[in-house]
């Protein structure tokens, strides 16, 4: 198993070396040189694919070790996560449910707000307002997640605890709100791009037929942009699923299946981040955390493949041509 990455790593590095070194004293013709340069760039292009392969390889190499002692079924559906007990329990079902709860609730908040903001930017705002607000929204998308985690933990959690008289403000609701704030700029920005990509002449055709701007929006623009908007929404959800710092700091950290939005949970990324630091290299617990990494990787890969499929369908549509 270990030979595959080495082989890939070697081909990856040998190609640039070949192009850089003058091979013989014979004058190298420009065609030959051009072909070599080309190969360097092709190799650079494939580097991302190689990294993907390496990520899969190392996740599985470190994670599959767990399954010599724990069955896949007990791992995925076991209801108890006590990795440091003796004997330890490695059931991640509560962690998966924690991730699902937080991702679902944050999407329920972020999707309408993100799409609403996109519709405002794309269709309501004047040209001038849009020129200012669109970059502002993009700017806010770059807010570091640790900052939102900090705000949720230090500002929002005590407020929640006071208002509703609940045992802790670090819970599903708080984490979902912070994740939603993080996802909204992404959803809004991608959705607005999709609205913007709908051909102008289709919108003009609709308006020229006496449609109001709202009617044009719901009957022509949104149907034309729906796949692009769908891509934005899925990517936003995928990000919420994989985001670490917010759920690490704000979700409360209790490995239980949530029954209310005021319950504390311990989503998958939070578990990895919280426990990896205190785990002996190569222990069963260490392997279990990599196995969680595999689950997380596959979940987000699934989201991304769906997003890619949706956006490919989007590209096939388009304006009519002569």
């Amino acid at each position: 198993m270990m030979q595959i990455p080495q082989a890939q790593a070697i081909t990856g590095s040998r190609v640039p070396a070949m192009a850089a070194a003058p091979l013989t004293k014979r004058k190298v013709t420009s065609t030959v040189r051009e072909a070599r340069i080309r190969r360097v760039f092709v190799a650079a292009g494939f580097f991302s694919v190689i990294i993907m392969g390496l990520i899969i390889l190392f996740l599985f190499k470190e994670g599959l070790g767990l399954f010599s002692t724990v069955s896949v079924k007990d791992f995925l559906f076991g209801e108890f996560w006590y990795p440091t007990y003796d004997p330890a329990d490695f059931g991640i079902f509560p962690l998966i449910m924690g991730s699902v709860a937080v991702a679902a609730l944050s999407s329920a908040m972020a999707v309408p707000l993100g799409v609403g903001a996109a519709l405002y930017l794309g269709e309501v705002a004047s040209h001038r307002t849009r020129e200012i607000l669109k970059p502002a929204v993009e700017l806010l998308a770059s807010l570091p997640s640790v900052v939102l985690g900090f705000v949720g933990m230090v500002v929002i959690a005590p407020l929640m605890q006071q208002w509703w008289d609940i045992p802790t403000g670090l819970n599903v609701l708080n984490a979902s709100m912070m994740l939603a704030i993080m996802a909204i700029p992404t959803i809004a920005s991608i959705s607005e791009d999709a609205l913007h990509a709908v051909p102008r002449d289709l919108m003009e055709a609709s308006l020229a037929l006496g449609a109001t701007r709202l009617e044009t929006l719901t009957r022509v623009t949104i149907p034309g942009a729906i796949s692009g908007m769908g891509t934005g929404v899925i990517l936003g959800m995928s990000r919420a699923m994989g985001e670490t710092m917010v759920v690490l700091m704000v979700a409360g950290g209790a490995a239980q299946i949530p029954t209310s939005i005021f319950d504390s949970v311990r989503p998958l990324p939070a578990t990895i981040a919280a426990e990896m630091g205190e785990t002996p290299f190569g222990s069963e617990h260490y392997h279990a955390l990599f196995a969680i990494g595999i689950v997380l990787f596959l979940l987000t890969l699934g989201f991304n493949l769906v997003a890619a499929y949706v956006s490919r369908r989007f590209q096939q549509k388009g304006a009519a041509t002569l």
Partner: peptide, 24 residues
């Protein structure tokens, strides 16, 4: 294939990058 690789690389959660960096 290259585009798929880049797209999926962009979608990998940052904590998984952390695991990968730790292992590799």
């Amino acid at each position: 294939i290259v585009r798929l690789g880049i797209q999926n690389l962009a979608g990998i959660p940052s904590v998984v990058f952390g695991l990968f960096g730790l292992a590799l």
